[in-house]
C-alpha cells in the first residue's frame, strides 16, 4: 500500500485547505478567548455576555466547515482498516473509488440543499433569537466547507483513476 504519489497531487490543494484550516484555528482561539473572558466578566464584573451561545454556535460552524476540507485532504477521517488485507488489491482500489463516489454524491446533495436553505433564510430574513444575527451565513459556510470537501474528493477520485493507486 503506497501512499498516493506526491507528484500527482496538486500542491495548491494542500496549501488552500491548509490556509482554511489555519483560519479555523484562529476562530477556535478566538472562541477560547471569548468564553474565557465571558467567565471572567461574570465573576469579576458580574455582567454575563448576553447571547454568547449564539456567537459560539456561529463560530463553531465556521471552525468545522473551514477545517473539513483539510481533514479530508489529509485523509483524517476515522475508518476501520482491519479488512484491508482480506479484500485484496482490487477490493481496496474499488473501495477507495466507490466510497469517494458515494461520498461525493451525498455531500453534493448536502451542498445543494444548504444552498436552498441559504436562499430560504435570506428570503424570510431569519435571525437568531437574542442577538438577531442573520442565519443565512451559517448555511453559506456549510455550502463553502462541504463544497470544498467535494472538490477534494473529486480530485482524489481523479488521482486514484489516473495512477491506480490506493489512498493511505
Amino acid at each position: 500500500m503506497s501512499p498516493i504519489s506526491k507528484k500527482a497531487w496538486p500542491a495548491l490543494v494542500d496549501r488552500a485547505t491548509l490556509a482554511l484550516a489555519a483560519l479555523a484555528g484562529l476562530f477556535l482561539l478566538f472562541l477560547v478567548g471569548l468564553v474565557f473572558v465571558a467567565v471572567l466578566l461574570r465573576y469579576v464584573a458580574q455582567s454575563p455576555i448576553l447571547g454568547i451561545n449564539e456567537i459560539v454556535q456561529l463560530v463553531a460552524v465556521a471552525i468545522v466547515m473551514l477545517a473539513l476540507p483539510w481533514c479530508t485532504d489529509r485523509n483524517g477521517h476515522v475508518r476501520a482498516d482491519v479488512f484491508d488485507r482480506a479484500i485484496g488489491r482490487a477490493g481496496r482500489f474499488s473501495g477507495d473509488l466507490f466510497s469517494r463516489c458515494f461520498s461525493t454524491f451525498v455531500l453534493s446533495v448536502l451542498v445543494y440543499r444548504s444552498w436552498l436553505k441559504l436562499l430560504d433564510a435570506r428570503e424570510f430574513e431569519d435571525v437568531t433569537n437574542m442577538l438577531s444575527l442573520p442565519i443565512w451565513p451559517f448555511y453559506g459556510m456549510m455550502v463553502a466547507g462541504m463544497g470544498l470537501c467535494v472538490f477534494v474528493l473529486v480530485l482524489q477520485i481523479a488521482v486514484i483513476l489516473m495512477t491506480g493507486e490506493e489512498m493511505k
Binding site: 477521517h77 476515522v78 475508518r79 476501520a80 482498516d81 479488512f83 484491508d84 479484500i87 477490493g91 481496496r92 474499488s94 473501495g95 477507495d96 466507490f98 466510497s99 458515494f102 461520498s103 451525498v106 455531500l107 446533495v109 489512498m167
Partner: peptide, 19 residues
C-alpha cells in the same frame, strides 16, 4: 459493507442514512 471497503465511518453513516 461500506466500512469494510474502506469508507470512513462518518461517510458510511451519511451515505446509508441518506440513501
Amino acid at each position: 459493507g461500506l466500512m469494510i471497503f474502506r469508507t470512513p465511518v462518518a461517510f458510511a453513516m451519511l451515505i446509508v442514512g441518506y440513501f
